[in-house]
């Protein structure tokens, strides 16, 4: 069952530069939350703090709390690797492993985390590819390289790879920005289906997309160049797009700045 995420007073730094400041929010299980806002306002940075991917960058660090079902992901002794198994991630550019076949790509998370029986892996690969709506397109060529697929298929392969390790939460960092409208639609449909099993958080620059797929929307912005990004407003998506309480949000979604 998916779990609730509670963030409180979160700051993230790149070296001395503070990228985001004082972010607090609650994300309910089995919902889709969209992060919108102008470039450089810290949406992706915040997303990466949620599965401890932020600290992979040299000099990057995080202050504050992220609770997954009450347990602090940044608490003492918490292993980042185990956090990332609970909270999967899909990146902006499709990045299948070039040395692996389609099958091996989906099985990567399972295989790389220890031995499992062949039949068990076979089953998980099939359900994951079905879950990512890719099974029918690739079932006859599972042994072919994942890099040989089209961009949209590659991105769905990456989603299959992420859900194969059965995470609780799925983070998506502009998953459709490199894709054509048809592939984008396929992935948006997929998100609506995945919602029943996972909690999904998506960063997007496409406001129609945020309006179409998400239940809740958070608007990020920064006060000025070099200032840290903050959450200006977070509310139900329908409310953000029809009747936002902040002037800045309204300006952004109606295209008056950003």
């Amino acid at each position: 069952m998916s779990q609730q995420i509670q963030v409180s007073g979160l700051d993230a730094y790149y070296g001395r530069h503070k990228a985001i400041e004082d972010i607090s929010m609650t994300i309910e299980p089995n919902t889709i939350t969209a992060f919108i806002g102008p470039s450089g306002c810290g949406k992706s940075t915040f997303l990466r703090t949620l599965n401890r991917m932020h600290e992979v960058i040299p000099g990057a660090r995080v202050e504050g709390k992220v609770l997954l079902d009450g347990e602090d992901l940044y608490g003492p002794g918490v292993e980042p690797v185990s956090v990332r198994r609970m909270i999967g991630m899909v990146f902006q550019r499709p990045n299948p492993f070039p040395t692996m076949s389609i099958y091996e790509n989906v099985a990567a998370g399972l295989r790389l985390n220890g031995r499992r029986s062949k039949s068990e892996v076979d089953g998980i690969v099939e359900t994951s590819l079905k879950g990512a709506n890719l099974w029918n397109e690739v079932k006859d060529r599972l042994g072919k390289p994942g890099a040989g697929l089209s961009g949209g298929q590659q991105q769905r392969l990456c989603i299959a790879r992420a859900i194969a390790v059965r995470p609780e939460v799925l983070l998506m960092d502009e998953p459709c920005s490199a894709l054509d409208p048809i592939s984008t639609l396929a992935i948006e449909d997929l998100m609506a289906e995945l919602k029943s099993k996972f909690t999904i958080i998506i960063v997007t620059h496409n406001m129609q997309q945020a309006a179409r797929v998400s239940d809740r929307t958070a608007f990020f912005n920064l006060a000025g160049q070099g200032q840290p990004g903050r959450v200006i407003e977070m509310d139900d998506t329908s409310r953000i797009f029809t009747n936002p309480s902040q002037k800045a949000t309204e300006d952004y979604i109606t295209g008056r700045f950003g």
Partner: peptide
């Protein structure tokens, strides 16, 4: 990063 994100 893709690999780290899978918990590897």
């Amino acid at each position: 990063e893709a690999s780290y994100a899978l918990g590897v």
